[in-house]
Amino acid sequence: MRALLSRAPGGPETLTLADVPDPVPGKGQVLVSVRACAINYPDVLIIADKYQFKPTRPFAPGGEIAGVIEAVNESVTGWSVGDRVIAVIGHGGLATKVAIGADQLFRLPDERNFEEGAALLLTYATAIHALLDRGQLRTGQTLLVLGAAGGVGLAAIELGKAFGATVVAAVSSEEKAQAARDAGADRVLIYPRAPFDKAQSKALSEAFKDAVGPAGADVIFDPVGGDYAEPALRAIGWEGRYLVVGFPAGIPKLPLNLTLLKSCDVCGVFWGAFAARDPQANAEHVERLFSLWSEGRISPRVTATFALEDAGVAIAKMANREAVGKLVITVEQSGPGSAGTEQR
């Protein structure tokens, strides 16, 4: 099979396409013929050895896939060759095949294509866990979403609207502002690019406050971090919840006196650990996502697709914060096992 491999720590330019032996599904595993793999910010970090998990090299990045089961270990029940599936796997998705645990799989609805399927789980499952479990978002509340045109930001907008919130989207360009509006944001704020000096930080704080209104934001969804975090926190409402989702702009240091003055919570959101610790709760969230998807209330936005050999370009766009919506790698299949599994 073919795989795009990380052989040494570095950027996307260090990835190399190689022929490697097909994986063999072990106990509890199935072999999936990968048809699409979404790119997410952890792919930027994992190849640079900056992620929480450091796989043994060489490895293929790519943690979110859609495909077709090609083989099933005899220990597995409930899955068959030919089943269309999606899964979040951590790494290994930028390859034509991957062996993964059957307990990681979800069925891809027949009416959905592989690109859509690959773009659903990581962003929407992160967002629904963040908003409901950590943020306790309720109907009528105000939600401020930073980085609102990225995959997880757009998911937070759609879910916020589905749960009855007023959604304020914060983005860095007019193109991204339009994407946020298209996703249903009630108000959109375009902020400047960091870094900020003290006066710029204060001005951004005032802009956030104006955007969310005098009562402040009940929930702030922050997948950006860096110099944006403190100005956003200053716009939080009484007993608000600040959701720490990611740090592409850097890891911020927050003045904790603000949490006292607003009696607010700063809540970490680590969806992967949540899903591993409470798979039943995660499965219930995913089932709710499928329902919202079928109702047309959420819809993964795949804005660009790339061939496997060009996946490094997509990772670079993610690293440079140029991505709007989801970037997806389409994986061409050839040889034995590929017949009868055309993409729908």
Rank of each mutant, 00 (worst) to 15 (best):
L189R: 12
I190P: 05
Y191C: 12
R193F: 03
A194L: 04
P195A: 06
F196S: 06
D197C: 13
D197A: 11
D197W: 04
K198R: 15
K202D: 15
K202N: 10
A203H: 02
A203W: 02
L204I: 06
S205N: 10
S205I: 05
E206M: 14
F208K: 12
A211N: 14
A211H: 02
V212E: 08
P214H: 11
P214E: 15
P214K: 15
P214R: 15
P214C: 01
A215E: 14
A215G: 06
A215Y: 03
A215F: 02
A215L: 14
A217K: 06
D218K: 05
F221P: 04
P223I: 04
G225A: 12
G226L: 12
Y228A: 13
E230W: 08
P231I: 11
A235P: 14
I236K: 10
I236M: 14
W238M: 10
W238I: 07
R241C: 04
R241S: 09
R241I: 07
Y242V: 10
L243G: 10
L243N: 06
V244A: 10
I251E: 07
P252K: 07
P252Y: 05
P252D: 12
P252H: 11
P252I: 00
K253M: 12
P255W: 05
L256D: 04
L256M: 15
L256R: 00
T259H: 06
T259S: 12
L260D: 02
K262N: 11
V266Y: 11
V266G: 03
V269R: 09
V269A: 04
W271Q: 03
G272A: 12
G272K: 01
G272V: 00
F274Y: 13
F274K: 08
A275T: 00
R277W: 01
D278V: 02
